[in-house]
Amino acid sequence: MNKEKVIVAEGLTKRFGDFVAVDHISFEVSKSEIFGFLGANGAGKTTAMRMLCGLSIPTSGKALVAGYDVFKDTDNIKNSIGYMSQKFSLYEDLTIRENIRFYGGIYGLTKKQIQDKTSYLVDHLHLQNHQNSLVKSLPLGWKQKLAFSVAIVHDPAIVFLDEPTGGVDPVTRREFWELIYDASERGITIFVTTHYMDEAEYCNRVSIMVDGRIEALDTPKALKINYDSASMDEVFLKLARKAVRGE
């Protein structure tokens, strides 16, 4: 495995009053790794992800994302990451081209770069006949693939994916993962959450959060052996059932 660390978290903690949403989590993610970030609803996934994206200042602990401190360098973090979620991705009332141009623009790409990227993406995703149609007229699967491509349009060090494949049909879901592998081969680190346990198997390593703590972190294979389970689904259920707190 490549040794260059892209995310280093040590004792990262976030409290809201008395409630400890994220409780001293420590982990490292290497360059071009596909890192699965699992947990039941309310386990603290979203809060942890927000801190790593520089959207929320941790209460205590340390974390470096792409070499930048999550306490001080949030602006630099935002420039070196991409983000995509099921809920927020593209502007529905803009066309495909307009969306790419917009996101390229906010990440400071030059006109030339945007043009090159646009034609590359349109080709790569087979959207030639749709490049000037509004995003809302596309099927969900296409939207999600496009959203992912747009999230990495500026070649970020890391891309955060928050349940990117929810509701997508099985074939497109797999095509989506091929895009993820592709990005990882190009050196982009992938940090992904999902509710589909079979997708957890596609990750290089998986962490499972329970009640704000990382309860397990290893390769899918090792996790299955350690927890004496046939699938990641079983591993997840065994761990998540231990949860005491609700959302």
Partner: peptide, 8 residues
Amino acid sequence: TTGVDAVS
């Protein structure tokens, strides 16, 4: 069950 975790 959309958007609900595996346990629920």
